[in-house]
């Protein structure tokens, strides 16, 4: 088994967007991570949607969520990318942003030593290229 995680091939994934998720991806394409916060009451909502579930305002501010830590993760065994190669370990990870109302962002934990991955470990944000936008990935800080 490999000792480090591998991010799956994102290059052929065309991200579907709508009115309410597009600002996230447009910022991501400029390598900026932002999350939606209610413009009236300040409640963070996720995923992005048309209403604040607390006050029903549609005003939305897109803000930097600050530093995140691993909330949970799994380690998936994926078939080798090339015939006869080693299987690859893909690590879907939920990162919690305490300063953004506890928003939990899902993404791939890239190139991390498997033995070092742990709940509460701090992460930094990196970027990978999907078919139509850049997308956030995580690195162990």
């Amino acid at each position: 088994m490999p000792s480090r995680s591998t991010t799956h091939d994102l290059s052929r994934i065309a991200i579907a967007m709508d009115t309410w998720t597009r600002p996230f991806w447009e910022a991501a394409d400029r390598e900026r991570l932002v999350v939606p916060r209610c413009g009236r009451c300040g409640h963070y909502r996720w995923p992005p949607g048309p209403f604040c579930p607390q006050c029903h305002s549609q005003e939305t501010e897109w803000v930097d969520p600050g530093r995140g830590r691993i909330y949970s993760f799994t380690v998936l065994s994926r078939p080798p990318a090339t015939e006869g190669g080693e299987p690859e370990l893909s690590v879907p990870t939920l990162v919690r942003f305490a300063d953004a109302g506890g928003t939990l962002l899902l993404g791939s934990l890239a190139d991390a030593p498997i033995a070092a991955i742990a709940i509460d470990a701090p992460v930094t944000i990196g970027w990978a290229q999907a078919a139509n936008t850049r997308v956030p990935i995580f690195h162990l800080a």
Partner: peptide, 22 residues
Amino acid sequence: PTPDGEWRRTADLRGPGEALAL
């Protein structure tokens, strides 16, 4: 693909068991 589910795809979660593992 639906706009509210795209983070699953960027994370590589393909089945219920993978997601519930978290």
